[in-house]
């Protein structure tokens, strides 16, 4: 235990008996919160961004780069708001994206490969985890949701493509198939048939986005960054609403055990929590 930890415990006025129980509570809540964050992040991503990150031959230069960051920042911002406002913990975004990545890989092995026989090369996922780390780091440094949204969300949107291109580039090498030039990703998608997904269903770049230079990649990345800003603010606000203490009544006995002096103290808890953004 560091000096800082001791100082926090002193300020929190927990009795020496309550401290180990407080740690037990921490562990329980971490486990429960992890499952909650995991399931909410995973389901929200499946509903909003799903197809674009399922298959290697959906990872195009226009829509993939746009859609994945904007669908994942929703959960990242909400959980950041909740953990920051309640506990000043800057781990919401990281936890959301890390658990999403873990869940995604489990599903890839169990369901895509195990049940549907898809090869892993067809279903490798991308991740916004690096952007989430930046988002959390900027929140610590600025301690302001306004600054985090302005710079953190922009970096979140911009970092997705380069962070994932590092390991996806190999899939876009040119290869010949039946006399036509195509990418390795297209070849994988063609070779391993997906019964319900005809080729024309793909919503990928059709080449109509006029760009500076050959590729719409960075145009899409900047647009994604731009949209991320607004979604960040919107869902930070939703996160703040979600952690209003009015919705979480705390029992009197619980309060007594953990050193809150009964009803009067309880009122103060509610009041303090109702102004979550006060410090920013």
């Amino acid at each position: 235990m560091t000096e800082n930890d001791r100082a926090i415990l002193k300020v929190s006025e927990l009795s020496s008996r309550a401290i180990p129980w407080s740690r037990t509570l921490d562990v329980l809540i971490i486990v429960v919160a992890a499952f909650l964050v995991w399931s909410v992040s995973h389901i929200s991503f499946l509903l909003l961004g799903g197809d674009w990150d399922f298959f290697i031959d959906w990872k195009d230069r226009q829509y993939w780069i746009l859609i994945i960051p904007i669908t994942t920042i929703i959960m990242a911002a909400s959980f950041q708001a909740i953990f920051w406002n309640l506990f000043r913990l800057p781990v919401g975004a990281t936890a959301s994206l890390l658990l999403l990545l873990l869940g995604t890989w489990i599903v890839r092995y169990h369901s895509w490969q195990g049940l549907a026989y898809f090869p892993l090369s067809l279903v490798v996922p991308g991740t916004c985890l690096m952007g989430a780390l930046v988002l959390d780091a900027i929140l610590v440094l600025s301690r302001s949701w306004l600054v985090t949204g302005m710079f953190g969300a922009v970096l979140y949107g911009l970092l997705f493509y380069p962070a994932n291109w590092i390991y996806m580039a190999g899939y876009f090498q040119p290869v010949m198939n039946m006399g036509d030039m195509t990418s390795v990703a297209d070849l994988i998608g063609y070779t391993f048939p997906r019964a319900g997904t005809p080729e024309y269903i793909r919503i990928i770049e059709r080449g109509t986005l006029r760009t500076f230079g050959d590729t719409p990649t960075w145009v899409s990345a900047f647009f994604s960054a731009f949209v991320c800003i607004f979604l960040y603010y919107m869902f930070w606000g939703l996160g703040v609403l979600a952690c209003n203490a009015r919705f979480f009544p705390v029992g009197e006995r619980f309060k007594l055990i953990y050193g809150n002096k009964g009803k009067a103290a309880g009122k103060a808890v509610g009041a303090a929590a109702a102004q979550p953004g006060a410090a920013s």
């Binding site: 300020v11 929190s12 407080s22 921490d26 000043r88 953990y258 050193g259």
Partner: peptide, 10 residues
């Protein structure tokens, strides 16, 4: 670190 209740109180 001490997490939920201590930080909440702090």
């Amino acid at each position: 670190r001490p997490l939920i209740v201590p930080r909440w109180n702090a």
